[in-house]
């Protein structure tokens, strides 16, 4: 008897091939809806720290595609964790696993429904991990998710993490995107 999760989740893998459009590089790996099947998958795939630069993993609720354009993402945003190069060895895998456990374990109390998924970007210039939520206007939900997430990652008070609207990320880039919330 396996332990059912509240949601069915889909793991996606993105591998950068500059000759192809973005969406052609995105692959659905598998779906799962039990604790046991999550671990069978997690134990089978590469750790994020061992992926080639330019690759992403995304874990989203079933039916939500890991892109801004999806109906359930387009009004939303993300709590973004940016990591230094040094953190890849020490913290990247640990932070990503903690992110996954927050998602599948439904760690956000009354606001789990606001969570769409999470993305990890492995990049030479610095890795990123983010939890995506569905509506930037749901301030209580966004802030609760951010505070809980920061606690679960064990980030100290002095570290500030920011929440950015996808609509802003899509039109601006890099440091031009301003935080809608911080915790």
């Amino acid at each position: 008897m396996k332990h059912p999760l509240q949601n069915r989740w889909t793991l996606w893998f993105y591998k950068n091939d500059k000759t192809k459009p973005w969406q052609a590089n995105l692959r659905l790996v598998t779906k799962f809806d039990t604790v046991e099947d999550f671990w069978a998958l997690y134990n089978h795939i590469q750790l994020a720290s061992r992926l080639m630069s330019g690759c992403d993993y995304s874990l989203f609720k079933d039916g939500i595609e890991p892109m801004w354009e999806d109906n359930r993402n387009k009004c939303g945003g993300r709590w973004l964790i940016t990591l230094s190069k040094q953190q890849r060895m020490l913290e990247l895998d640990q932070f990503w696993l903690e992110t996954l456990l927050c998602l599948i374990g439904e760690a956000f109390d009354d606001y789990n429904n606001d969570v769409c998924g999470a993305v990890i970007n492995v990049r030479a210039k610095g890795d990123k991990i983010a939890i995506w939520t569905r509506d930037t206007e749901n301030q209580k939900a966004v802030l609760h998710i951010g505070k809980t997430y920061k606690e679960r990652l064990g980030l100290p008070m002095r570290i500030v993490i920011g929440y950015q609207a996808h609509a802003d990320t899509a039109t601006k880039s890099g440091f031009g995107v301003k935080n809608k919330f911080v915790v």
Binding site: H3, P4, L5, Q6, V35, E36, D37, F38, W39, A40, Y42, N43, E98, L101, I104, G105, E106, A107, N112, R152
Partner: peptide
């Protein structure tokens, strides 16, 4: 009911899953 699992509970299954 809602199925919520804390991290220790989830972590407890990592290697049980691998051995089955």
């Amino acid at each position: 009911g809602k199925k919520r699992y804390d991290r220790e509970f989830l972590l407890g299954f990592q290697f049980i899953a691998a051995s089955t």
